[in-house]
Design a protein around this nucleic acid. Structure first.
Length: 263
DNA sequence: ATGTCTCCACGTTGGAGA
């Protein structure tokens, strides 16, 4: 079972490079973030023709998350409890009805910049709402995987120059502590169990030649329940994807991150 | 290097968000 997560930065603008990657890697399940389209504009047919079942939680212009699966999806939940009238499409959860089922998510945690604003306090509140759901899910003792763009740099080593990130919402002490709390709760970061030897970054900014200079950060994560972590067999950051472009589509600023399980 | 990319608006360039 291969499960991937990818912030695609517009599923329609990026469609050609996304489909190329899917044809190459053939994930059983893939969470997408930053669709930047309403449900009706999601390119269903393109993914259905590759054999995927689709759950979409879209929104006009911003945010938007999806889950694609070669197995049927059930128990689909859009959004987190709380923050009434929260219209930001940032959370999607579903059960993958495979012979060994998985509960999977697509998480697009708020960026939160600049610090000291309502955007930052919204990020902190959103983390608490995710924490509440993660706590509930842990009690189910299922194979659960919380995948997505967390917009959290866990450790100084996870960015190219920590000094440059001290005033950024992705690297605040309380945000990093919150990421640790998920782990203390009982979730394992797939990266920690199988750190790649060559690269740890999952995002390179479009600006200032960040990709060319390899000035990246690690913000896309797979947090696994114990029942899932027991079966982890591989962890891959698809770094080369950051450099791929076609005639009709440029690269996302994030790359896909995959985990595999032997069941 | 306020450097790039995407989406949207009663559009034809500029603001917002990342």
């Amino acid at each position: 079972m291969k499960i991937s997560t990818w912030n695609v930065n517009s599923v329609n603008a990026r469609l050609e490079v996304i489909l190329n990657w899917f044809r190459e890697e053939r994930p059983d399940v893939c969470s997408l973030q930053e669709l930047k389209c309403i449900d009706e504009k999601f390119p269903y047919e393109a993914f259905e023709s590759l054999g995927y079942n689709i759950a979409v939680h879209g929104q006009k212009t911003y945010n938007g998350v999806a889950i694609l699966s070669k197995y049927p999806l059930s128990d689909i939940t859009k959004g987190l409890k709380g923050e009434d009238e929260d219209e930001q499409a940032r959370y999607l959860e579903a059960v993958v009805d495979a012979p060994h089922p998985f509960r999977v998510t697509s998480i697009y945690l708020p960026n939160g910049n600049p610090i000291g604003t309502e955007k930052y306090s919204y990020k902190l509140r959103w983390i608490e709402r995710l924490m509440a759901r993660a706590t509930q899910l842990l009690a189910l003792e299922e194979r659960t995987i919380l995948s997505g763009d967390y917009n959290i740099i866990p450790e100084p080593v996870d960015c190219y120059n920590p000094a440059m990130w001290v005033d950024d919402a992705l690297f605040q002490t309380e945000v990093r502590a919150a990421f640790r709390r998920f782990k203390n709760l009982g979730y394992s970061d797939a990266f920690d169990l199988m750190p790649p030897a060559d690269n740890r970054y999952t995002f390179w900014d479009y600006q200032a030649g960040a990709w060319q200079k390899n000035e990246g950060i690690r913000i896309d994560h797979h947090l696994m329940s114990p029942q899932a972590a027991d079966k982890l067999s591989a962890f891959t950051i698809h770094k080369a994807t950051r450099g791929f472009a076609t005639e009709n589509a440029k690269a996302s600023d994030h790359v896909p991150v995959s985990v595999e399980f032997n069941l």
